[in-house]
């Protein structure tokens, strides 16, 4: 049967056409397509890797930031505590100092008062002595006249010269 015999003309055309197409595609199509796809695959893989690296780096930075933040916070707390301590210490010291000062003042005042008291007593004594001497003088002057009158005169003297110290 003719159907099962190859036809020389068709074989020739097929061989020429197929080889030409094969040559063209093998030269300029298939390597380009495969190369392009491979290049793109490689690029995507590289990009993914780079992205992961960047992500990791970012995570490192984040961690560092957290660490720094925590350290700063601790430092802050420490400083605050220190200042608190210092403050209370200062207050305490001031209190002590103030008390000492006050005590000193009080002691000084007391000394002064005692001194003045002594002085006043001395003055009173002197005055009492002077008055007594005065009265005694007057009495001695009037003794000669009347006893009654003497007493009245003392009374009067006392009334006129009341003791000057009351405070």
């Amino acid at each position: 049967m003719d159907l099962f015999l190859p036809e020389s003309g068709l074989v020739i055309w097929m061989l020429i056409a197929f080889l030409v197409v094969f040559a063209i595609l093998a030269k300029v199509a298939w390597p380009m397509i495969m190369g392009g796809v491979e290049k793109r695959n490689a690029h995507i893989a590289e990009s993914l890797l780079a992205a992961e690296e960047a992500n990791n780096a970012l995570a490192g930075i984040e961690q560092k930031k957290q660490e720094t933040l925590a350290a700063t916070q601790a430092e802050q707390i420490r400083i605050m505590k220190e200042s608190q301590d210092m403050k209370s210490q200062v207050i305490e010291e001031a209190k002590v100092q103030a008390r000492q000062e006050a005590e000193k003042i009080v002691a000084e005042a007391r000394l002064k008062i005692e001194k003045e008291q002594a002085e006043a007593m001395a003055q009173i004594k002197n005055e009492v002595i002077a008055l007594s001497v005065d009265i005694a003088e007057k009495l001695l002057q009037r003794e000669l006249s009347d006893k009654q009158a003497q007493n009245a005169y003392i009374e009067q003297l006392l009334k006129n010269n009341p003791p000057r110290i009351e405070a």
Binding site: E7, S8, G9, L10, I12, W13, F18, V21, V28, I33
Partner: peptide, 30 residues
């Protein structure tokens, strides 16, 4: 006989189609 028969024409058509279909893509990739 090397006539351009129906089948020879069919071969050329397929070959032409293949070139027209794949070459523009190859150019884009290049």
């Amino acid at each position: 006989d090397i006539s351009i028969t129906k089948n020879a024409f069919g071969i050329f058509l397929v070959c032409g189609f293949m070139l027209a279909f794949f070459l523009p893509a190859a150019r884009k990739y290049k």
